[in-house]
Write a protein that binds this DNA or RNA. Structure first.
Lengths: 354, 354
DNA sequence: GTATCGTACTGACGCGCGTTAGTAGCAGGT
DNA sequence: ACCTGCTACTAACGCGCGTCAGTACGATAC
C-alpha cells in the first residue's frame, strides 16, 4: 500500500482531537471506560473517514491473540483430488468468519516434514488448530495436546492415553464401514472387494479397512487379502485398483470403496470391462460427496456430514481458545448409509433417487 | 501453549551469554555483521535447545511483512461443490511453502460483503492477494490495484483502463469456449445447448457464454436463448438445468457445459431420460477436473492447467511483493480441448481414453 | 473551607523483534 | 604518545497497539 493508506490509531486520535488511549477505548468498546457520547461519535467518525483498520500484528503482539485458526490437511495430495475436503473448507471458513476468525491453510506434503504446522504454533501465528484426518505416524501432535494447545481433530482416531484431552468431531468410521459392508452382505454378496482410502498411514484408512474386515468375519465370510487393494483418495487410484481386481476370475460381485472418488474411478473400470453396476458388481462408497447422487448409477454411500463437522469443529475450537471446556471432549456425528442405485438394493424400485 | 514454551530471543541471548542483537544477527544471517564462528555456534545451539521460533507478530510489526498470502475465493459456494478449486489450493499451498509464504483462505459469502478481503489488506495481515475468478460486481479490487497493492488474478477478465497494472494468470476463456463449441459444430451439431458456469456476476461465466455464442454465429447458426440455462458450479444445478432442457422437443443434440461438475450433473439427467451420450446428446465440459476421465463416458473438456496456474500466480505475486515487475503483466496459458468419448468424436476409435 | 467522589479523559509502559549507531579492545603505523 | 582502522560485539529506539495508573475538574458532603 502507499504510505498514505497506513492509517494508525495515532492519526485517528489527532483527527478526533483526543488521545490514542481514547481511540482505543472507543473502538474496542472497553467496559468501564467513561467516554462521553459526543467524544465517542467524534472518534467513530474520524476512524470511518480515514478507513482505519487496526494493524493485526501490533494487536496480536500485545493481546497474544491472532484471531487466526490453522487448518492442517495431513496429506496434500488428498486435497488435490478428493471432493470431500472442499465442503469442509467451505464450512470451516464460513463458521470461522462468524466467530471472528480467519483460516490459515497448511498442507503436509512430505512425511518427513509432518511437523510444519508446529511452526505456526511456535511462531504464534494461530490461536488454535484443526487437524483433518490425522496421520498415524504423527508424533508431534500428542505433545501439542499434552501442553494444552487448543486442537480439534476431524475424523476418527483412538489414543487411549490421552482420551480426555483429545478434542474431536468424529464419525464412527469403524461402525459405519462395517455397516456398509453388512449392507452388501445382506444383499447376498460373498465376494466383496475393498479399495482402501489411502496408504496405510492414515487412521481413517486403517479404521475403514478394519470395519470391512469385521463385518465379513461377523458374517462368517473369509477375509481375503486378494480382494483388497490400496487406493490413494483419487479416481485414478480407484480405476487402477479395480482393473487389477478384474484381472482374474472369479470377479468380486461387490465393492466397498474407501471414498466416493475412488468408487467413481472403480465404476469406470467396471464399465469399461463391460460389466454392469449393480447387476454384475454392486458398489458402495464413503463420504457422500456432492456429485455422488449424479454418478451413473447414483452411488450408495456412507454420508459424512462434512459441513456440520466443520461447523462443530470451529465452535469447539473457539470455545477451547476462550477456555471453555466442552462437556464431552469428543462429538460423535451419525454417518448414515444413503442407499441409491449402485448397490442394487433399489434397482427395481426408483433407480435414480438423488 | 504453557508459559514455559514462550521462548523469546531474550532467553536465547541469556543462554548463549550474548546480547539479543547478536542473536538476531546470527539467526537472520545479517550480512556485514561480524560474528565469530564460536559465538555463532553458541547462539545456534541455544536456539535449537530452546526450540526458539521468532514471534510472527513482533517480526511483522517491525519488518512490515507477514509472509502470508491471501487467497480470495469470490463465491464461497463454488468452493463447496466444484472439484476445480482444490487443485488450485493444493498448488497455491505447495508453491507458497517453497517461497516461504503461508496461505490465508478468504471466502466471499455474500455479495454485500464482497470486500471482506479488504480488511486483510488494511489490517496488514497479508503481503499480497490472489483472487480467484473475480466477480464482475467487485468495486474494491480496482482501487486496491490502483494503489499498487500486490494482487494477482486467476482467471480471465478485461479491464481496459487498468491493463498495465492488472497482474494475472489466465487462459483465454473466450477463445477456448468458442473452440469447444466449434468442435461440436464440426461434428455436425446445430442444436447445441449451454449451461452457464454460474449466475451472471462472474467474469468467467459471461466470457464462456460469449465464446459459445460467437462460435455459433461464426458458423451461421442462430443463438437461441431457450437453449441456454444458468447453472451455479454444481452437479445439482447441471442436473436440473438439463432436465429443463429436456422438457420440450426437439431436444438439443449437444451440450456445452460451463464446467465439468455441471456436465456431470447434466449427464445424469440425460441418462435418466433414457438418452445416450454421445449418440443422442454429445457433451463437452470445461476445466478437466481430476475425475473427468473417469466419468461414463469419459468427458471431453477444455483443460485448465490448475496446478500450473497456481504455481505461476504465487511466483508472480512473490515477485511483485519484492518489487520485481514481471515482463508482461498477464501470463496466458494454453487451454487445450481434451477429446474423450462424451463428444462422439472418438466413439468408434478408443472409447475410454483417459 | 477542605475532603471525598465520580466523570472524562491522558501519559507512559511493554509486547518481541529488526536495526542503527555506537563502543570497547587491540593491532599496526608514524 | 597518538591516531587510524578493524573486529566483535551491545544499547537503545521504535514498529502500533492495549491497558494500567494516573490526573484535572467539577459536584457533593460535612
Amino acid at each position: 500500500m502507499t504510505p498514505k493508506s497506513r492509517v494508525t490509531s495515532h492519526q485517528v486520535a489527532k483527527r478526533a482531537g483526543v488521545s490514542r488511549t481514547t481511540v482505543s477505548f472507543v473502538l474496542n468498546n472497553v467496559p468501564g471506560a467513561n467516554i462521553s457520547e459526543e467524544t465517542r461519535a467524534r472518534v467513530l467518525q474520524a476512524a470511518a473517514e480515514l478507513g482505519y483498520v487496526p494493524n493485526a500484528a501490533a494487536r496480536s503482539l500485545v493481546s497474544g491473540q491472532t484471531l487466526t485458526l490453522g487448518l492442517v490437511v495431513s496429506h496434500a495430495e488428498h486435497l488435490k483430488v478428493d471432493a470431500y475436503i472442499p465442503q469442509l473448507l467451505y464450512s470451516l471458513s464460513h463458521t470461522s468468519h462468524r466467530h471472528g476468525y480467519r483460516v490459515l491453510l497448511e498442507t503436509v506434503e512430505d512425511v518427513s516434514r509432518a511437523d510444519v504446522y508446529l511452526e505456526l504454533v511456535r511462531g504464534q501465528r494461530i490461536d488454535g488448530l484443526i487437524v483433518l484426518n490425522l496421520r498415524s505416524d504423527d508424533k508431534q501432535l500428542p505433545e501439542l495436546i499434552r501442553r494444552n494447545f487448543p486442537v480439534v481433530l476431524i475424523g476418527f482416531r483412538r489414543w487411549a492415553e490421552l482420551e480426555e484431552k483429545v478434542y474431536a468431531v468424529e464419525t464412527d468410521d469403524l461402525e459405519a464401514s462395517s455397516r456398509a459392508t453388512q449392507h452388501l452382505i445382506g444383499l447376498g454378496h460373498t465376494r466383496i472387494a475393498h479399495i482402501t482410502f489411502s496408504p496405510d498411514n492414515y487412521f481413517a484408512t486403517q479404521t475403514r479397512h478394519q470395519g470391512y474386515r469385521l463385518a465379513l468375519e461377523a458374517a462368517g465370510l473369509e477375509y481375503n487379502p486378494k480382494l483388497v487393494r490400496f487406493g490413494n483418495y483419487s479416481a485414478a487410484s480407484g480405476y487402477e485398483a479395480m482393473q487389477k481386481l478384474l484381472q482374474r476370475k472369479p470377479y468380486p460381485t461387490a465393492l466397498f470403496a474407501g471414498n466416493d472418488t475412488i468408487a467413481l474411478g472403480a465404476m469406470a473400470a467396471i464399465h469399461e470391462k463391460g460389466l454392469r453396476i449393480p447387476q454384475d458388481i454392486a458398489v458402495v462408497g464413503y463420504d457422500d460427496i456432492p456429485t455422488a447422487p449424479y454418478l451413473i448409477p447414483p452411488l450408495t454411500t456412507i454420508q459424512i456430514p462434512a459441513v456440520e463437522q466443520g461447523r462443530l469443529a470451529v465452535e469447539m475450537l473457539s470455545g477451547l481458545i476462550r477456555g471453555v471446556v466442552p462437556e464431552r471432549p469428543q462429538i460423535r456425528l451419525p454417518a448414515p448409509l444413503i442407499v441409491r442405485a449402485s448397490c442394487g438394493a433399489k434397482q427395481k424400485a426408483k433407480a435414480y433417487q438423488r
